[in-house]
Amino acid sequence: MNSIFGHHTIHQFDEELKALHNQIIEMGELVLNQLCLSLESVKYMDLSLAQGIIDREKVVDEMEVSADKTICAILVRRCPKGSDLRQVLSASKIVNCLEQIGDKVVKLANFVVLMHTTEQVNTHYFSLEDIYRLGGVSTEIVQSALEAFEDMDVEQARQVVQYHLTLDQEFQKALHHLIDFLQAEKSNVNNTVSQVLMMKALERIGEHARQIAELVIYQLEGQEPTHHLPDLVEDFPVDGL
């Protein structure tokens, strides 16, 4: 990534910031790939694919540790200020978001493993269409947030923050479907709980992607990410209940 102001007087500092940026892009690509594969493993109840995702989570964790070391070294050696400081602070938080997304992806994969273990591979009882739709929106948000980070595109980052609202709506829709399912006794409680947890994981993935987009905006413009005090009504788990 080229600084808008050209090179630092200490050129090595440019290299270190660039290396950090690339580390995060690499970690983001892996996490996005894991997310796509996890949705595929859910779709086809593919056990080996799910186990591969769980195995690769170690690599995501290692990448987080490595990025943290780079961030620590830059803080100690360079005492960054201004946009450099914002870049390092954002990087630290984005790495954490990516690691959290990785954890949620593993939850999805674990679900597939659980289904195989308990021999409930028949997904007839699940309204998986909701999962696919939610997964699709989450994947799009993560991908778009990572593109905004890679290109340092503040407009795209703002679009991600807006688009995240769609995910909330999809989540609420899916919850209502599930309640209908339960009321019609087409699904048992165990399966419903599993599905809610999967949906919640996907909703959280989208939330972390939104945070990444807000951090891109912070890095570029210094605008602090917004924090809303949750309203009791708005924070209620299901709309309209």
Partner: peptide
């Protein structure tokens, strides 16, 4: 001044682009 200065010149100085 040290996290988000208003002026580009200040930003350039504190981030070590000149001076």
């Amino acid at each position: 001044i040290f996290t988000n200065p208003s002026e580009e010149l200040t930003e350039r100085y504190i981030t070590g682009h000149f001076g």
